[in-house]
Design a protein around this nucleic acid. Structure first.
Length: 414
RNA sequence: GCGGCCGUAGCUCAAUGGUAGAGCUCCAGAUUGUGGUUCUGGCUGUUGCGGGUUCGAGCCCCGUCGGUCGCCCCA
């Protein structure tokens, strides 16, 4: 039994997960992002420096055998910040980097939320212009579209953290009250209005006016972002929503969260601009923005949509019809394994009835069977297309080319 | 950290307080060298764990662990 909040990945689960990873990588590459990675275990203070001591209650942390205080990473951004800070002069800006780390949180699990998950992280570093924000949001949209999701399935709720900062500046909200205001706005959707109003005090009327009618608030940044997305043909995927502020204190500009349209799940992804984070963590001052998308909520949505990795027929099952010729069969197996690309060539490890071997081949969705029997002494095997049950005698040296020819016929038939 | 619901075979679930069962899966055979059907047979349980009540507990009570959903918190 896996620990609470941790998952086992049986082959089908692993195939599903890997198919998600493959899509993530595919889209990121198409957007010109390059992959990086870092250690799952980090010094504890890497996280407390950014988020304060209170984050420790949410961390898997312990003292290692060298008396170091360490923690399993709860997010990738601090690691990314360290990597970039250490060697930023080695890279041309802007950096477009992505990663698929497994991240960990020590908290009670609930729907869509475990103690570990894989999080697709995409960040652009060293570009202050809004073109980067547009690029990043387009990427999050196209990532979900790559899974067959459409504007009917999800929406990117767009907001502007800077707008709220300006708002509070203009009304002279004291520094120490600001985080509470942001928190109140963040929770306003889930709490009774009176409670939020109480928290907001004198700001309540104005804030509610903005939350109720996002169009009433002016944000040139959002105007620009929306225009940019329109140019890219993606306007139907976004909606202005100033309740989105993101819990974290370090966001500075455009922020966004992606939700399923049904409202059944928690956020699919979230991110935004954090221009001051690198400066605050180290000596390097670079603007930055990014998003994270977890495999758990996405996986639940995809399962609900019936999405699954394609697993058509492929590979070759070598049927040993006569145990006397197992040695010859092994020679064929090994030759095919050298010739074939990225597909299984398998056989029964133990003597087994022919019918049983075919059954195995079929259950495992092989495309071809190669039957080895006494004819092998004349250099002949039977090649069978499992789907059509069509069987042909083929000289051993021609097996591979015969298989490829058969496959070509299948594709030509469509 | 707090609360609701739930914990019986690998899976889905039955069993009035009275000898723990079924379906599916899996394995084997029917079928001696060619397929997902069918039929037959077989394996699998400290009823999550520990205590209590009772002549007797899967069932009732307490605790605990785990699952699930929500809260807190937070992506």
């Amino acid at each position: 039994m896996a620990l609470p909040g941790f998952r086992d990945f049986y082959p089908a689960d692993c195939a599903f997960r890997n198919a998600i990873f493959a899509k993530w990588r595919d889209v990121a590459h198409r957007y010109g992002f390059v992959e990086y990675d870092g250690p799952p275990l980090e010094p504890l203070d890497l996280f407390t420096k950014k988020s304060g001591q209170e984050i420790v209650t949410q961390l898997y942390n312990f003292t290692d055998k060298g008396e170091r205080e360490v923690a399993l990473r709860p997010e990738m951004t601090p690691t990314l910040a360290r990597l970039v800070t250490a060697r930023h002069k080695d890279f041309k800006k802007p950096l477009k980097w992505f990663s698929i780390p497994q991240v960990f949180r020590y908290e009670r699990q609930q729907k869509g939320r475990l103690r570990e998950h894989y999080q697709f992280n995409c960040d652009i570093i060293g570009e202050a212009g809004l073109e980067a924000d547009i690029e990043l949001i387009a990427l999050v949209i196209d990532t979900l579209r790559a899974f067959g999701l459409t504007e009917k399935d999800f929406v990117v709720r767009l907001s502007d953290r800077q707008f709220w900062t300006d708002f509070m500046n203009e009304r002279n909200v004291p520094e120490e009250e600001r985080y509470a205001v942001i928190q109140a706005i963040d929770k306003s959707e889930r709490e009774p209005r009176e409670k939020t109003a109480e928290k907001l005090g004198r700001l309540a009327t104005e804030v509610f006016a903005i939350l109720d009618d996002a169009g009433s608030a002016k944000s040139e940044r959002l105007d620009t972002v929306e225009t940019g997305l329109r140019y890219r043909g993606l306007p139907d995927y976004v909606k202005r929503d100033f309740t989105v502020v993101r819990g974290l204190a370090y966001y500075t500009g455009v922020v966004f969260e992606v939700f399923d349209r049904s409202g059944e799940f928690r956020a699919i992804a979230g991110g935004g601009r954090y221009d001051n984070l690198l400066k605050n963590l180290g000596e390097v001052d670079l603007p930055a923005l990014g998003f994270g998308m977890g495999d758990v909520v996405l996986g639940e949505i995809l399962k609900g949509n019936g999405w699954s990795p394609h697993h058509g027929q492929s590979g070759v099952y070598v049927v040993i019809a006569d145990e006397d010729y197992r040695a010859q069969a092994m020679k064929i197996v090994q030759e095919l394994r050298l010739q074939i690309f990225d597909e299984a060539v398998d056989y029964s490890l133990q003597p087994s009835k022919v019918g049983k071997q075919f059954q195995t081949a079929e259950e495992r969705v092989f495309e071809f069977a190669v039957v080895v029997d006494s004819q092998v002494t004349d250099g002949i095997v039977e090649v069978k297309v499992l789907a059509t049950r069509q069987q042909t005698k083929v000289a051993i040296e021609n097996v591979y080319s015969h298989l490829m020819e058969k496959r070509g016929e299948r594709y030509r038939r469509g």
